[in-house]
Amino acid sequence: MKHDIRLRIISLNTAFKLIKKFEDNWIYIKMILKTSIKSSNCAYFKFKLKDFIILDDDIFFYGDEDEDRLYLNKSGIVQTECSPEEDEILIKIASSNGIIEVFIKRYLPILNVRLDELNNPRKNIIITEGQTDWRHLKYALKKLKENGMFENLDIDFFEPDKKTEMGNDKLKKIRDYHALLENEYCKIFIFDRDVGEINSEFEDAQVLYHGNNVYSMLLPIPEHRKDTPYISIEHYYIYLEKIVVGEGFIW
C-alpha cells in the first residue's frame, strides 16, 4: 500500500504511543473515505484531546464535551504513518466501502479560542510569561508525574502561540482583569524575576492572592542563582560546557 509522501510508515504501537502524547492538546482530525480513485468523501472536526484509550477491538478519542469523541475499529487498521515532526498521524482502515484515511494532527487553535479557554477553564490553570515558558513547566510536571509525584494534581497551562506576546506587563493586566471576575477554578500567574518593578510588587511574599481565585507568584530563585536573582525560566538550567580537544566543538 502506498503512503503519503509527507509521511513515513510506522508500526501501530508506535502510532499509539505518539497519539498518547497528544493528550491535553488540541487535535485536528480529517477523515477521508476513498471508495474509488476518483471518488472520496471528507469530514473535518477538532477538539482538545482529554483521553486516548486503547481497547482490544477499538480505540477511543475523548474531549471535554460529550460531542468531542471519535472511535475507530482497531482490527481494521492496515497501515499507520507519521510526519517527521511526529505531530501528525495517519491511520488507514479497511472497510467494506473502501479505505478510510484518518489524519490526526496536533495544533494550536486561533487566539480567540485559547483566550476563551482562559476565560472559561474547566480546571485550575497556570499562565506564564513568554511564548514558551509554559512548555518548560508542562514538561517538568509530566516527568514528575511519571516518577510518582503530583499524580493527582489537576492543572492545565495556557498555551499562547508564537504570534502572541505575553510579557510581564500584559500578564499583569490579564491577572488584574481576571481578579475582578468570579472564577470557579484557580488561575495562577507566574512572573519572571527579571523586572524590578514586578519584583517590588511582591516584596518578601512568595505568593500574592488577588481575590476571586486569582493568584500570582515570582519564579523561585534556584540555589545556583542566589547571587544573580534577576532570572527568567531559562536560568533554571545549568549548562556544562567542555571543550573536547581535537573535536572542535563544545558540549
Rank of each mutant, 00 (worst) to 15 (best):
K2Y: 12
H3S: 14
I9N: 08
L12F: 15
L12K: 13
N13W: 15
A15V: 09
K17I: 14
K20I: 09
K20R: 14
E23H: 06
E23Y: 09
N25D: 15
Y28P: 01
I29T: 01
K30M: 10
K30V: 12
L33T: 05
T35W: 05
S39P: 05
S40L: 08
C42D: 14
Y44P: 04
F45P: 00
K48Y: 12
L49A: 03
D51S: 13
I54E: 08
I59F: 06
F61A: 00
E65F: 09
R69A: 08
L72H: 04
L72G: 02
L72T: 05
S75W: 10
Q79Y: 07
Q79L: 11
C82Q: 02
P84M: 03
E85D: 10
E85I: 10
E86Q: 10
S95R: 10
I99D: 04
I104F: 04
K105T: 15
Y107Q: 10
L111T: 14
D116S: 12
N119G: 07
P121E: 06
P121W: 04
N124A: 10
I125H: 01
E129I: 05
E129N: 04
Q131N: 10
W134H: 12
R135S: 12
K142F: 14
K142L: 06
K143T: 14
L144N: 08
G148S: 02
G148P: 00
N152L: 13
L153I: 06
D154R: 10
F158L: 08
F158W: 06
P160V: 02
P160A: 07
D161L: 11
T164V: 14
N168A: 12
D169E: 15
K173Q: 11
I174N: 01
R175W: 01
R175N: 03
L180N: 11
N183Q: 00
F191K: 01
R193D: 02
V195P: 00
I198G: 01
N199E: 09
E201N: 06
E201C: 06
E201Q: 10
F202G: 05
E203W: 06
A205K: 15
Q206T: 13
V207H: 03
L208D: 02
Y209H: 10
G211R: 03
Y215Q: 05
S216Q: 02
M217V: 07
L218V: 05
L219N: 00
P222K: 05
E223W: 08
H224K: 04
T228L: 04
P229D: 00
P229G: 01
S232N: 09
S232W: 07
E234I: 10
H235P: 01
I238Y: 02
Y239H: 12
Y239K: 13
V244Y: 09
G246Q: 06
G246L: 03
G246Y: 04
G248F: 03
